[in-house]
């Protein structure tokens, strides 16, 4: 084997090992905190007696007489997302950089159908 061939083999092997290391780390260990807006549904429990003789329209859904059974509360939580998940989100424009430097999911519920670009 020539000196040049040895140099090439050494460089290629080192680069391949480094690349493999990066791939394994990225796929298996690398996570990043992402702010996600979660919809939290809470069952509404009225105090005893309040359901029956409530004041008109006090508890009811606007425009109806129905009493809401649950309320939906939106809360921003920070979740660690793995790099493969972040790659998937990036392909559909699901991540953005917030003003405070943290990552934020651009949607809540169903993901966007396609990349915005």
């Amino acid at each position: 084997m020539t000196r040049e061939a040895f140099r090439r083999m050494a460089c290629a092997s080192l680069a391949a090992i480094a690349g493999l290391g990066l791939t394994v780390f990225g796929a298996g260990w690398h996570t990043h905190p992402v702010m996600v807006q979660k919809e939290i549904k809470e069952k509404l429990s009225l105090p005893p007696g309040m359901g029956e003789d409530r004041p008109a329209s006090f508890f009811s859904v606007p425009g109806t007489d129905a009493i809401p059974q649950e309320i939906v509360r939106r809360e921003t939580v920070t979740l660690p997302k793995s790099e493969p998940e972040m790659v998937l989100e990036a392909t559909r424009g699901g991540l953005e950089l917030a003003e405070d430097g943290r990552l934020r999911l651009t949607y809540s519920g169903a993901p966007p159908a396609r990349c915005p670009t």
Binding site: A12, A16, A18, G19, F25, A27, H32, E83, L97, G101
Partner: peptide, 25 residues
């Protein structure tokens, strides 16, 4: 696309770089 998107997000794309380095090597 992933390198550009991750650059915009200020996150190092280890997975994409690793795949490119292995393939290139």
């Amino acid at each position: 696309g992933i390198l550009a998107q991750f650059s915009a997000l200020h996150v190092m794309p280890f997975l994409a770089i690793g795949i490119l380095v292995v393939t290139g090597a």
